[in-house]
Nucleic acid binder design. Structure first.
Length: 104
DNA sequence: GTAATGACCAGGC
DNA sequence: AGCCTGGCCATTA
């Protein structure tokens, strides 16, 4: 049981708001969800998501503009495939945040 | 109760 | 550009 169940829900809700063709960082998601210094918690929450979730977790990347997964992992490939499918282009595994970062 | 863990981040070198 | 360090804080053991 969470001490603050609404916080997890807020984070998921915020991630769900990221529009197609845009991305957001863990830190920004935390900020928009009203949890300013809880970037790591965002990752913890996304990790718990089931396989067929509707939450667009692939639109969440780290502050360096890169996937937070190792390049040889399936998660990395899936994330990049989905982003590319949404016209989000990554050069050398790096995404241009100036261009693709979602700003509500 | 303490200690370790982690889909993070900013700063320093 | 890369690598290391300290800080962060909810979860887990």
């Amino acid at each position: 049981m969470d001490q603050d169940p609404t916080l997890k829900e807020k984070i998921l809700q915020t991630v769900a708001l990221i529009p197609k063709g845009k991305v957001c960082t863990y830190g920004k998601v935390a900020e928009y969800a009203g949890a300013e210094r809880r970037a790591r918690f965002v990752g913890t929450v996304l990790k718990q998501l089931p396989a067929g979730t509707k939450i667009p977790w692939h639109r969440v990347i780290n502050s360096q503009g890169k996937s937070s997964f190792p390049e040889d992992s399936d998660h990395y490939q899936e994330q990049m495939n989905r982003l590319q499918q949404e016209e989000v282009v990554a050069m050398k595994g790096k995404i241009n945040l100036q261009r693709y970062l979602w700003m509500p």
